[in-house]
Design a protein around this nucleic acid. Structure first.
Lengths: 85, 85
DNA sequence: ATGTGACTTCAAGTCCGTG
DNA sequence: CCACGGACTTGAAGTCACA
């Protein structure tokens, strides 16, 4: 498992645990929406600077986002379902 | 404390704990000698790719190198009192 | 609300040499 | 063995338009 994938998964998981869309997260971390998307698709190897900025917004430590088995807080899991009318 | 400094300190400490010179570490991690030096002087913000590669050589996890303190855990500094009405 | 290709720019990372 | 400068190449950082 590459570090980029670890980070990508943790990022997506943490983002959802916080109930944020890529847009919302991007806005709060002062980054571009498509850049978050790229990160979650492990297109880039982010710098620790970006990792840290994201971690702060998500209320966690930068090291948590690189953890091989990250324990995110129990997400409310809104479970939007897929039946969008 | 910026993330670069955290990383720089952890890197240098881990490198010495492993009894490696900057040159040796650079060689084993397949990185440049002067780059390790730059990292320890927090000139650059390394990518998670580099952090991971370094961690492997040092026998630790990438997340360990970004840990604010390897052993001592500090209490979650609460808001430093913002005189906000 | 997300994925993706194309694009530009500036920092990451390399290589040289010096004290 | 390490700090540090300069010049260089590669890829991350940051933004759009469109699917």
């Amino acid at each position: 498992m590459e570090i980029r994938e670890i980070f990508a998964r943790n990022l997506r998981a943490a983002r959802r645990a916080n109930g944020l869309s890529q847009e919302e997260l991007a806005h709060r971390a002062d980054l571009d929406r498509t850049y978050i998307s790229s990160l979650e698709r492990h297109i880039y190897g982010a710098t620790i600077d970006v990792v840290d900025r994201l971690a702060q917004v998500l209320g966690m430590e930068a090291s948590d986002l690189l953890q091989r088995s990250a324990e995110t807080q129990e997400p409310p899991s809104p479970d939007p379902g897929k039946d969008q009318a």
